[in-house]
Design a protein around this nucleic acid. Structure first.
Lengths: 192, 192
DNA sequence: AGAGTGGATGTCAGTGGCTGACATCGCCAC
DNA sequence: GTGGCGATGTCAGCCACTGACATCCACTCT
């Protein structure tokens, strides 16, 4: 067939997750991951910019889902309404079938600070992209950043709960966003 | 006098910032930083868990300021009101005199993705600590996380503006928080 | 079929971040 | 002054990551 098996990156990711889950992240060498699929360390680093990325690469699609949700929003929607739509759209990227995989992946991340760092960074990067999309819709800088970053926060919390509970991510995210808005309203009424 | 000059970590931090600012972060070796103050690379890593930390260590005081602000809040204050107090308290840790130093430091961070990653991570870590303090006050898990994380977002945005504008951080933070609450209220009224 | 091209991989050498183990050095207490 | 002890130095070594160059083979063109 093919000279090189297709989907090299995917095979590396799979092997990496398995090794990380059993042996632990730090106890697993990039060379070992590569060897597990019959490749070289050098090739590993051609597919992933660094060792951590093997667990995170492929989130462009999630970003795309967010952006699709933004584009689908009504032109006169307020920033948080747009974010609500983006969350609905993004939630479709985590159907319940992915939960088992997501769980083992998350358990690896939760056991390693360096991986958590990367995870937070990815979330923040997503927020930055979303903020840019909001600004492109005419939302002003600060409002766009606030709404986008809040969306990321909500997504993060909702995702964590989705891993634990057996409900759909879309439902949980809507609920969490609602709670955020309610909390904010609570603060706005009594003071100032 | 003393066999070892006191404040070794501080001298390392100062030397590191200077080298990073002129030569660049990646072009500066941990060994070079140590040498600049007459020490060894090994000693550098005894003071800082990794190379990046030389720019971030010492933020426990900032966290402390946040927590003080939380403790000072009225017992019946809503989560966001508590966060507002925490922000006021935290803002005192960045008097305007620190702006020049903060600016050069930030310019170094802005030029290096790995440093940005650490910066985001620190913010998130702070948020986690604040969330725990809120929970200790009886706030429920999700609300505590939302409020704390929103506080971190506001702080981050405010800090960025504080670097650019010549106003006090407390003022800017109050303003940004206000905008967040307003945005949230906007979203709560029209829909649902 | 033979020559050539190009993308993915292998090989090798080297840098730098980071660590463990052990030695040293000199203030301080007793 | 002896011994403890905390901060530093020395040394060897692992591993993440990179640049340079060779190789390999499907595919195309002739």
């Amino acid at each position: 067939m093919a000279r090189w098996e297709p989907g090299t990156a995917e095979r590396l990711q799979k092997a990496a997750l398995e090794l990380f889950a059993t042996r632990g992240y730090e106890q697993t060498t990039a060379a070992e991951i590569a060897q597990a699929v019959g490749l070289t360390e050098r090739t590993f680093f051609r597919h992933f910019s660094d060792k951590r990325e093997v667990l995170f690469q492929g989130q462009e699609q999630l970003v795309r889902a967010f952006l699709d949700g933004i584009e689908a929003a009504a032109p006169d929607a307020s920033p948080f309404e747009v974010v609500a739509g983006a969350l609905r759209s993004a939630a479709t990227f985590f159907p319940d079938e992915r939960r088992p995989h997501a769980r083992t992946r998350q358990s690896v991340i939760d056991r390693n600070p360096a991986l958590q760092e990367r995870e937070h960074h990815k979330l923040t990067t997503m927020a930055t992209t979303v903020a840019a999309a909001l600004r492109a819709r005419g939302v002003d800088e600060v409002a766009a950043t606030l709404a986008a970053e809040s969306g990321a926060t909500v997504f993060g919390i909702a995702f964590t709960r989705w891993l634990r509970e057996e409900r759909s991510l879309a439902d949980i995210a809507a609920e969490v966003l609602d709670e955020l808005l309610t909390l904010a309203a609570q603060a706005l009424r009594p003071t100032r």
